[in-house]
């Protein structure tokens, strides 16, 4: 009886269908709980109609146009992304990353002028993600035709990223290509006392002469 009362009570406070649908859809987004979904939904409802339409068009357009670059598997609005299409970049150096977000992070440094290859994930044995779920065979297929001389393994320095880098290193070294791993060390602006033993150990091991 009590639970029937409860559900009747809940029904009375449910929003009109279009509002509730919007809240439900927003609630499916990562990191958005029911309360945040409700807040965003009401924000959208308060917006001028043309601003809300702009958002819906942006979503529809992105879904329609965005695909993976056929060469590097970064997100792209064309068959080949703008980084692969740029003839000024160095074909000989290939930077391997896990996700498209990592390409942006490296591009922001303005230190790298080579090409990229996005694996679209990393090895995660406990989750059952092995090399065949990643763009590994596509990476191997690029090396010879593109005359790649160096592969920089820039997977995340966590356990899955390290495992991926070690696995790729094993595959690539016999092919006679220079295989390098992005360096690990202390973050600029960080405190030495908070560095973990592994990071500090690596930073000491790979220390460099002061110019």
């Amino acid at each position: 009886m009590a639970s029937a009362d409860c559900s009747a009570e809940r029904k009375r406070y449910v929003y009109e269908a279009p509002v509730q649908d919007l809240i439900d859809e927003l609630g499916k987004m990562p990191g958005i709980g029911p309360k945040s979904a409700q807040r965003i939904a009401f924000h959208l409802l308060k917006l001028p109609a043309q601003d809300a339409l702009k958002l819906s068009h942006a979503i529809a357009r992105a879904k329609e146009l965005v695909r993976f670059c056929s060469r590097c598997f970064n997100v792209s609005a064309h068959d080949v992304c703008h980084l692969c299409a740029d003839s000024r970049r160095d074909d000989g150096v290939l930077c391997v990353v896990e996700e498209p977000r990592d390409v942006v992070a490296i591009e922001k440094t303005q230190e790298f002028r080579g090409r990229y290859h996005v694996l679209q994930g990393c090895l995660n044995p406990i989750e059952g993600i092995g090399p065949e779920q990643l763009r590994v065979s596509e990476l191997l297929a690029r090396l010879e035709p593109e005359n790649v001389t160096e592969v920089i393994l820039s997977t995340n320095p966590n356990i899955e990223g390290e495992a991926t880098a070690m696995y790729l290193g094993r595959l690539l070294r016999p092919l006679g290509i220079t295989v390098t791993r992005i360096a690990s060390g202390l973050p600029v602006g960080g405190d030495l006392e908070y560095a973990d033993e592994l990071t500090l150990g690596r930073a000491l091991e790979h220390r460099r002469a002061l110019d």
Binding site: A195, D196, T199
Partner: peptide, 10 residues
């Protein structure tokens, strides 16, 4: 990258 836990919680 500047987490005080660093790579310990792996």
């Amino acid at each position: 990258t500047k987490s005080r836990f660093g790579g310990r919680l792996e």
